[in-house]
Design a protein around this nucleic acid. Structure first.
Lengths: 191, 191
DNA sequence: GTTCACATGTAACAGGTTACATGATTGG
DNA sequence: CCAATCATGTAACCTGTTACATGTGAAC
């Protein structure tokens, strides 16, 4: 009864496949909901995924018997495919988690722009900085809300982690923006 | 004298092309040195690039007259192609910087593992956490060193930014590790 | 009637990485 | 002679995004 299960892939942690397994660990969900959690929910500040990768991933996971699905017909909404983890899927996630996590990666276009601040005009830099501050404050507010609704300790750790980072960024930017906002003459920055 | 320059690409900020332009802004460099700066130097905590993308990028930038190169023969080392920005390249970078920077992205496998801490054994989590702490401390030390050698205000901003983040992460992990280290029974975490 | 949220999916493309191929020169 | 560092490059692959295609039913 095993057939072509032999070619189950090696699990590199933290691709969309593993993300799907992770989200499904907590509760069954549709592809649509998985995307929503990845880009709005408690995972959203440190992962990312779009439909174009999630749906194919779910199909593949189905082929490998790591997830199953049933059709759920709803009143007032289109019917949907609700996925849930199988025993094998659960085991696969745990296995994936045992790979040593790669170091965190921060990608920041904001910092890159900041490097060349002295060659951009002050008005522009001010607006870039203000935008970044607004974004950070919005993110922080969202996390604060989520923190209030979540009970699970791992999730609280992750949310708190995000909050700590965002707060640090915010404080740093507010206190140090002079360094990149001083306009064409950086020697005035200390003033 | 313009010929096929018409098909100069739109600049989406923060791909390897733009990264090369950015590094070359400060000083001329070889592909080898650009990679080094991207993975070790002052850029390294918020960008990434490998040979396989840098060399082709430099060739393309040459085709578009955004950079030029000369061969430098060295004694005791293989000769090398030293790239530098052209006027046009300088202008292209400034243009690219005017695109509104996309929000920072944090990718953290560590946090993902933390979410499932209660299903992993305590020894493993302890080692994951200790590893992460060691990494952060090493990164911090590296940034502190760099901060001491750098004078340029934009660079100091970027380095300080990294330090602020790493310090916040470090403190958070040290203070809160109990949440994900408590072992199989998360209800004991508060103890 | 049209816009919105729900819902699933694909194909073309972009943008990288990895591993390989090659080679000079130094130092142990 | 072997390993390490410097140095350049390519080809195969991987992974994910964007944009498109399609459709339901609610609410305005």
């Amino acid at each position: 009864m095993h057939g072509n299960e032999a070619d189950v892939e090696r699990y590199r942690p933290m691709n969309v496949r593993t993300l799907c397994l992770g989200i499904l660990w907590f509760e069954e969900a549709t592809g649509y909901e998985i995307r929503k959690q990845a880009s709005e929910g408690c995972f959203s500040h440190f992962v990312e995924a779009s439909y174009g990768s999630i749906y194919p991933a779910l199909n593949k996971l189905t082929d490998e018997n790591l997830v199953t699905w049933r059709t759920e017909t709803q009143e007032g909404k289109p019917s949907r495919k609700v996925y849930s983890l199988t025993e094998k899927g659960r085991a696969a996630l745990i296995e994936a988690l045992h790979e040593t996590p790669k170091p965190d990666v921060i990608k920041s276009e904001f910092l890159f722009v900041g490097l060349f601040a002295e060659h951009l005009d002050k008005t522009f830099m001010t607006s870039v900085i203000d935008t970044r501050i607004a974004e950070l404050e919005a993110d922080l507010a969202r996390l604060r809300e989520e923190m209030a609704t979540v009970d699970h300790s791992g999730s609280r750790f992750a949310i708190g982690y995000g909050m700590a980072l965002y707060e640090a960024e915010l404080n740093y930017i507010k206190n140090t923006r002079g360094l990149i906002e001083a306009g064409a003459d950086p020697r005035q920055a200390a003033e």
